[in-house]
Amino acid sequence: MAPTPFTLSIPEQDVADLRTRLALTRFPDQAPDAPWAYGTDLAYMKNLVPYWRNQFDWRAQEARLNAFPQFKVALPDVDLHYLHVPGQGPAPMPLLLMHGWPGSVFEFLDIIPRLTDPARFGGDPADAFTVVAPSLPGYGLSFRPGQKRFNIEEIAARFATLMTDVLGYKRYGAQGGDYGAFTASRLGYAHADALIGIHINLLTIQRDRPPPANPTEEERRYFADLAAWLKEETGYQWIQGTKPQTLAYGLTDSPAGLAAWIIEKFRSWTDCNGDPESVISRDHLLANVSFYWFTGAIGSSFWPYYARMHFGWPIPSGSTIAVPMGYCAFPKEIIRPPRSIAEKTYTNIQRWTPMPRGGHFAAMEQPDALAEEIRAFFRVLRT
């Protein structure tokens, strides 16, 4: 399991093919009503597609990723891609940093330097981390056609192998949002001996749990919000979790369709007042979408949804996670269980911080604030 250095270089013919397909985009009409009322807005897409074709510079975004040391290593059923960025400090702590869907390692381009070299951003070098940021198996460069599909339990097992057996870190921290938070939680449950602690910005609480017999006002509000979200905002989960192959045809063939599918989530899930580009630049959004396009991994990326719907929750029902846990409560996160609910799963919550701004893609929206919280949580756990 010897790692091999890796540099991303998308063939020029693939870049040209993307531009050709964008030029041939066939747009739908839009139902008469407020923009974005039924999904991605037509006017927005008619502006985005020509920009993507004629002005977006993929090579500049590729160079941003290649500025970090990257590797691949052959693990069971996957050639795993990861960034491995040394910390700049007296004793950097190893930190496994994990993305989710529809994100990628492009989420972390701004936060990694804040974690590896805090002094550069006015912080303490003693808080430095050595960051390991993998592409989840089945995502991005951890995908090849015909590859085995991975559930969260298997993803966590591969990452445990990466950190301990490949890189030699006997103990390490883990941080993530979305499926990265699911994976961090699974690591805290199944590989607790190796975990210094887990820090997450999405709580992985089973959503079919009944409300308490006598709920507090906060709990009552959460279950009402959850019911509304399950009714109006989870259509993507049902199609990705039941018929992922069918959806994959359209999104693998049409770059405009892929962008519409992904960017709608960035608009819905960020703290952006309806304008995702007010918190994440257009080029950064398109870098993430382009990464899905060029790697052809969108269909494989759906698999954790299918596994969750058909094979159960990654933390077995009734089980708890006892490793030290920290949580950032961003106000526009998609699901926001109160602490009283979270404590039924996470029994060692050591830091719970309500954040003033931010949403689901915290590493892109609020890299300074998230990095500061990660440093603060792990500061007291360093040995």
Rank of each mutant, 00 (worst) to 15 (best):
T25C: 06
F159A: 01
A260V: 02
V279E: 00
P125V: 12
V78T: 10
Y172C: 03
K332N: 13
G138P: 02
Q30P: 07
L109W: 14
A329E: 14
R282A: 08
R379L: 13
G188L: 04
P92V: 06
V166K: 00
A213K: 13
P212I: 11
R220L: 11
P28H: 08
G180W: 15
G39T: 12
R19M: 07
D193R: 14
F182I: 09
G39V: 13
Y327C: 11
K46V: 07
G168D: 06
S319K: 14
A260D: 01
P145S: 13
E333P: 00
E343I: 04
E107C: 01
L258N: 08
I280S: 00
T204Q: 14
L95I: 11
H84P: 09
P3T: 05
V132H: 01
W52I: 09
L97P: 00
V289C: 07
D57V: 12
A184Y: 15
P90R: 07
F121W: 15
A16T: 12
A307K: 12
A371M: 04
I315A: 03
F68Q: 01
I341W: 02
Q61H: 13
Y249D: 09
I239Y: 15
E343V: 09
T130I: 03
I341Y: 01
S319E: 12
A119K: 13
V49P: 01
E264Q: 13
R267G: 10
V105K: 01
E373L: 03
Y249P: 04
P337W: 00
A307Y: 12
A248F: 02
L141I: 04
Q240H: 15
S300W: 00
S278V: 08
R282I: 15
I262G: 01
L115C: 08
R220T: 15
